[in-house]
Amino acid sequence: MAATLVSRKTDWTGIIFAAVLTLVIVFPLVVVGTWAFTNVWRYPSVIPQEFGLRFWNQTLARADVWSSISTSLTLAFTVTALSAAICLPAAYAFARLDFPGRNLLFFSFLAGHAFPKFGLLVAIAGIFLQLNLIGTFWGVVLIQLVGTLLFMIWIPVAAFQAVDRRMEEAARDVGASPFRVFWSITLPQAGPTIAAAILLSFVGTFYETEGAWLIGAPQVRTLPVLMISFINNQPVIQYGAVLSVLLWVPSFIALLFARKVVNSGSFARGFGG
């Protein structure tokens, strides 16, 4: 891209954007990070009186923290595994097989995105109420599973379609059965993109708050749900701060791996851009 609007000398526009965005986006997170490693920070001191890891010990000693970590991880693993198990074969079918209603069914996954999300969750909760799924682990699994479908089908479909058909035919030609072709050629070729989809779905489930809060709370307490109750009822600020840092770990991993996928144009086009 040639610089057509912005001069090549000193990029003042960019510097102003960078400064403002740093202040608005990075600064609040730095504050949270600072709180997490603070033993004492009393008003009105600008910097904490005492740094330390005291509240890490205290937070990690809490049973509710550990139980919600394990709930969150169990949920995220269950939902991601289920989602992969049902969506990847479907994605392959959409990409490579022909069957009646293929296009219509493919676009049916958009239906959930034509409505305001929380309204839809309330409508689903109405169904769950009759099925006694409110407040149960599997109720939360189901509602989060629905949230992952679009991503876990559309991204892998694109990945499978990007695999050169001739590559698969060449494998058939040297003697591989159709299943062997899928296992040795198609899957490794589509692998990185599918891995990104699975990672995004895992992280998305891990942070999913609204469904878990509406359907699961208070019986099923995930980390974000625990965080809400910390914010609402916990006078010790550091608990929330430590939990925030803990909570951010999966996102950080996703940030490292999924950055390329997110920055690529196809990702934004997936959102209709």
Partner: peptide, 25 residues
């Protein structure tokens, strides 16, 4: 869109960063 300076990469990174910050944090 119309800049190719090094600052632009940083600005883009920042603009996309909130995607990796859960709303609860």
């Amino acid at each position: 869109r119309f800049s190719d300076s090094k600052v632009a990469a940083y600005v883009q990174g920042l603009a996309i960063f909130p995607m990796f910050v859960p709303s609860i944090i």
